[in-house]
């Protein structure tokens, strides 16, 4: 299925968010996630199910004012 990660489409067979993040190279990174505009905490990623067309945001610490 296709999911939209940080604005770019990705093909994935992963059903769970945690698995998809691992596939995309975020496995060991300090990131925060949201699916379809709703925050998904780190502990909830393993049992958060993805569906076709889901919008996933993966955010990391960045410079800010």
């Amino acid at each position: 299925m296709k999911i939209l990660v940080n604005g770019a489409w990705h093909d994935t067979e992963a059903v769970k968010l945690a698995v998809a993040l691992g596939e995309l190279g975020y496995g060991d990174q300090v990131v925060a996630t949201a699916v379809n505009g709703e925050f998904v905490g780190a502990e909830a990623r393993a049992h958060t199910t993805l569906a076709e067309g889901d919008r996933v945001e993966v955010l990391a610490p960045m410079q800010g004012g």
Binding site: Q29, V30, A32, E57, V58, L59, A60, P61, M62, G65
Partner: peptide
């Protein structure tokens, strides 16, 4: 102050 922004998996700039 710091912020959160999109991170490309391979770049690891945020890390």
């Amino acid at each position: 102050t710091v912020s959160l922004r999109r991170e490309a998996g391979a770049e690891r700039a945020g890390q």
